[in-house]
Simulated assay, not measured.
Amino acid sequence: MKLAVYNVENLFDRAKAMNLDTWEEGRPILEKFAALNGLLGQLHYNPADKTRMAELMRDLGLEKSDTGPFVILRRNRGGLLRRPKTGGILIEADGRADWVGSLELRDEPVNEHAMRNTARVMIDLGADVLGVVEAESRPVLAAFNSEILPALGGSPFRHVMLIDGNDERGIDVGLMSREGFPIGAMRSRVDDRLPNGQPVFSRDCPAFEVATPSGARLSVLVNHLKSKGYGGTAEANAKRKAQAERITAIYREMTDNGERHVAIIGDFNDTPASAPLAPLLDGTDLRDIFTHPAFDDGGYPGTYGLCNAANKIDYMLLSPALFDRVRAGGVFRTGMWPGSRPKRWEAYPEVGRPADAGSDHAALWAEIDL
């Protein structure tokens, strides 16, 4: 069987703030969105909260309308705010119970060339079991599978599963599998909590049980750990470390219960030598597919951007029994922008510019005798 993982970076729609030319442009918008959402969710608003809310709303383009260039403020009932004719914003609600509504990121369609190149990667990988990262929802993933893959000559996957996670931006993780590889028992971890009551996982850490034609069973945990670029560095590192520690505990529970064939895959948003990932990479017997003698990294150590060592952030970690059954593996970069001076790898002819790339991430794959 062939197991693969791919960060698809959304399939049809993506938050406009995440679709800007560079992460540096979108990051301040996403941080202000998160800060305002946090304040709006409080039970009680003190004067300082109200002042800060008004400032953030102005920064997000909501001074004159509930629709800004990147966010939408939905007010269904109650009195959250007033916009005087003289200008400005006055927060009139004293807490979350005083109004009904939500703050949402505005979406826009993904570049059509990028969407089709994402599909080409999924087709050319030829995976039997494919973990996907940053897909909007199960209906979107199912539509992409049934409409876009066949339109480009690919065969749709037989099974498509995605459990809605904790991220409000619509970047969830899921699993797709072929005929003969049915998805059985599933377990979500969206409700796992830190000591402060916050969710452990920014998205989820779902465990999917997959049966193989030989009768063997494979457990796949798909992950997308806390990003380095969203929020303060110390806070992000602490969150990523807590996630790695929880995945480690989950893995140990599984192996203690007799599971031998376990794969933990996804975008971990950090490098192998990083302190946040140490509990998972150094504190378990899991093996990184990059270390297998049959693995071909294509001449570059990374999986993101230009694939330098500092960009090795996508992983396929395998339990020892599974690692021993690997017959081949590699990094699939054909859907990525290859750079221009010089080009680092051969890309699809349709990847004429960075915006046309199927993803900024490479896909990882492994042929496993299972």
Rank of each mutant, 00 (worst) to 15 (best):
S146E: 15
L62R: 03
D285Q: 02
E112D: 06
A238F: 00
N46L: 02
L322F: 03
K228C: 09
A4S: 12
V173H: 01
V326I: 07
W337S: 04
R75A: 09
F201P: 06
K343W: 13
N10K: 00
A294C: 02
L3D: 13
D204Y: 11
V100L: 14
E108R: 14
A328S: 15
L11R: 10
L280K: 08
F295M: 04
S319I: 03
R353W: 01
Y6Q: 03
D59R: 06
P69W: 12
F208N: 05
G174P: 07
V5H: 03
D369Y: 13
R187Q: 15
R353D: 05
T86W: 00
Y6W: 05
Y6I: 06
A273L: 13
M161C: 07
N196S: 13
G299K: 12
N308T: 14
T51E: 14
M122E: 02
R14F: 02
P199S: 09
D66I: 07
R58S: 13
D21V: 10
L225Q: 01
M316H: 06
M57I: 05
G78L: 03
W337Q: 06
I171Y: 04
G329W: 00
A114Q: 08
E63V: 04
A309Y: 01
I89C: 02
G258I: 12
M1V: 08
Y300M: 10
L130P: 02
A278H: 07
H224M: 08
R74C: 07
M254T: 02
A328V: 00
M122A: 05
L218V: 11
V190K: 10
A135R: 11
M316R: 05
P301E: 02
T291F: 03
G232T: 08
